[in-house]
Each structure stands twice: as structure tokens, then as C-alpha cells.
Design a protein around this nucleic acid. Structure first.
Lengths: 211, 211
DNA sequence: GTCTATATTAAGATAGAC
DNA sequence: GTCTATCTTAATATAGAC
């Protein structure tokens, strides 16, 4: 049971607090309180709060880019697609604070803006590859403007689904679940698929059914 | 040219600044500076900053509910649908600051949460009525779970489209345009429509084309 | 109804001892 | 590497004169 480094404990606890309370509501004092360390100690490990946010964003950026590095010639099954989406939602939800107060975060940490845009781009390109794969397998029509709008819609949805879902929720349910996101994205794809694949995905979506 | 009341000028200017800079970045001092009045004067008209935010939310809530009060038995054409969506996006964009830092705003003004959820509900119900109308005209299939997922998707999209659109934008373009939102929503509907209506909406979408 | 001056509070951050 | 004590800054809000 090696002792976890204070620096890493700060990152873990900050992330948890940011997600739970919203980044603007989390002070450096609260973070150090939660860890039972002094504020001075926190500032020994990080020169500023923005360094913490920046490092967490770097982690997110790294994880999401790994996930979205999809080979161009992939032949993806609907099952694999569900698995991929599950991972994607899970990752985004783990860093959900970034999307909860986006304008505020970008205005206070403007250095993150290019990174945010790159991630948006990666997501859209990743979806493009996946749609191309479905099209190549003859499962989906190939009208480029339709596919482009669909990929934008997929990108928007993975970014904001969790925010939307938890807003609807009375704040009571409290149980975050990436499965609802996968269900929703499946229903974005269903009407674009041919009859047989459409039916297959519809049934697969039941496994991700809310409630 | 009747003189506009200070109270109303405060609301108008606050809304503009909130949308431009993000609500958390707009101090009461900045608002009063912008209006060339003293901070004390501002606090004569509003007991607190949250009163300003609350009143603006009330305006938004009122406008959006008026718009979403769609008669149950409406028979809507695709043209009319486009017009409706244009108004809807325009209204939401006029109060876009509310969705830009949602978690932060809800945590600082928790009294707004029920209203937010009611609006979400109105939107989804409004879309349900519109989809029912299309279904009744034989333009769209009627599978209830499909329609429900679609209405959720429409609701998510009208709420977050502008946020998404301006994030992608280098922040350079700067030209807010509800038409891009309408285009996007049309492309959510297109694959659900029968061949003829689908084609019609696809062509209609050209009028709302980006670029 | 509007002003100036100021009280209050709380955040981010640093200095210096241990 | 960690602590306590403190500085600095800035925002919300109030008091009292005009």
C-alpha cells in the first residue's frame, strides 16, 4: 500500500469537487480542507488554481484523444459501436465539470480554448470515420451533407448529454449513468440505417434502456 | 422619444453584458459603469444582483412559454415549422447566458431550478405536439419510443446548439445566427420523414444553409 | 432617484517557521 | 513537504448626503 503522492491526491480530490459542486464554487481552501492539508501546502504543489484545472484538462484531453484515435479503415460492428460510446460517455462524464460552466471556464482559463476546439474536432472526425465504416458496410446511406450534420449532432450530444440529463433530473436521482447517453446516440443513428440494421440497433438499444 | 426608465435600462444592459462576457464575469460595478450610473443607484432599483438575474429569467420564461403554447390539434406545415424553430432559436439566443454557465448559475440562484425544469418540459411537450402533427399528416412514423427519443434530442439541441456552435467557432466569426440551428434541427427530422416529405425538408434546409 | 464613500466578505496567493 | 499567519484584491451590498 504505497502512499499516494499529495500532488495526485490534490488532483483527484479537485476533480471530484469540481464535478460535484462546479469549478467556480470550489475554492483552494475547500480542496485543502477536504484533504486535511493546509492551503499553503496546496500552493507548494500547484502555483495556482488554474494549474490544477489545466492539468485536469490535460488528463481529459489525453484520455479522449486516445479513445478517438480510430483507424481510418476500421470495420465496426454495432456492438463495438455501443462499447465505444459507453467508454466515450464514461470519460466525458468523469470530467463533466468542464462542460457544465463552459463559458466561465474558458473566460477564466483562456489558454484552454484551443485544446477544447481540438477535442471537438477529434470527436467529429472520429464520428465521421465510424459513419464511413457503417456506410462502407452498406448499413447507412452516404449523402455527405446528411452525414456531416449527423456527425455534428453526435458531437454536440456526447458533449452536452450529461449536462442535459442531470438538469432534467430533479437533482434527486443522482445516479450518473453513461448508458442513457448511449441509448440516446443509438436513437440518433437508427433512422439513418437500412431496415435490417435499423431493427438490430433498435433492439440493441433496449439493453441501454433508461429505467 | 420618452425617456427609458433606469430600471429597464439596467435590465437591457445587464442582459447584453451577461451574454457577451458571461454572467459570473459581470459585476454590478461593471453594469453601473456601462450605464454611467453609480453602483448605489443600481442597488436602489434592484436589491441584489440575483434580483436582476431572476427578473431576466422571468422574461425568458415568459417569452419561451408563449412561444411553446402550441394548440394540441395544430396541423403544421414544414414551412411553418421552420418559422417556429427560427423564433425559438432567436429567443433562446437572446438569453443565451443562462445556458452558458448552467451549473454555476443554478448553484448561485437555486430558486431558478424549478423554472428551468419547467421550461425543459415545455420544450419537450411542444416538440411532442409538433411530431404528433407530422405523424397525423402521415409524414412521419409513429413508434412512440422513437418519437420520445427524438423529442428529447430536439430539446437538448435547441438548448445547447448555440453554446456548441460558438465553441467551435474560433470566437472569430462572432455572427450569431439562429438559421444554423434551424438547419441542424431540420437534419434531425429529415431521416424520420417519409421519402417525399424528407426530400422537401432537405430542400427547405438549403435556405438555412451555413455559409 | 441619484450620488460618494465605505463596510463586509471571501477568494487567490505568499512568507517564513518547522 | 507541510504548517500558520497574513497580504492583496475584488465583489456584493449599505449608509447617508444631495
Amino acid at each position: 500500500m504505497a502512499k499516494v503522492k499529495t500532488r495526485d491526491r490534490i488532483l483527484t480530490t479537485s476533480l471530484a469537487l469540481f464535478n460535484e459542486l462546479g469549478e467556480p464554487n470550489v475554492t483552494t481552501l475547500l480542496i485543502s480542507d477536504e484533504l486535511n492539508i493546509s492551503p499553503g501546502n496546496l500552493y507548494y504543489h500547484f502555483r495556482s488554481k488554474s494549474d490544477i484545472v489545466g492539468e485536469l484538462f490535460g488528463q481529459y484531453s489525453h484520455e479522449i484523444n486516445d479513445l478517438l484515435a480510430i483507424p481510418k479503415d476500421v470495420e465496426v460492428s454495432l456492438d463495438q459501436l455501443g462499447f465505444f460510446l459507453h467508454l466515450l460517455f464514461e470519460t466525458i462524464e468523469r470530467y463533466r465539470f468542464l462542460y457544465h460552466d463552459l463559458v466561465n471556464i474558458l473566460s477564466r482559463y483562456p489558454e484552454l480554448r484551443p485544446g477544447f476546439r481540438r477535442i471537438l474536432d477529434s470527436k467529429q472526425k472520429g464520428f465521421q470515420i465510424l459513419c464511413d465504416s457503417l456506410a462502407n458496410q452498406g448499413l447507412m446511406a452516404t449523402e455527405p451533407t446528411i452525414i456531416k450534420a449527423l456527425c455534428e449532432q453526435l458531437t454536440l450530444t456526447v458533449c452536452y448529454w450529461e449536462s442535459f440529463d442531470s438538469l432534467r433530473d430533479a437533482g434527486n436521482r443522482n445516479n450518473l449513468d453513461p448508458r442513457r447517453g448511449v441509448y440516446q446516440v443509438f436513437h440518433l443513428l437508427i433512422p439513418h440505417l437500412g431496415a435490417s440494421a435499423s431493427r438490430e440497433l433498435y433492439l440493441l438499444a433496449q439493453d441501454y434502456q433508461p429505467d
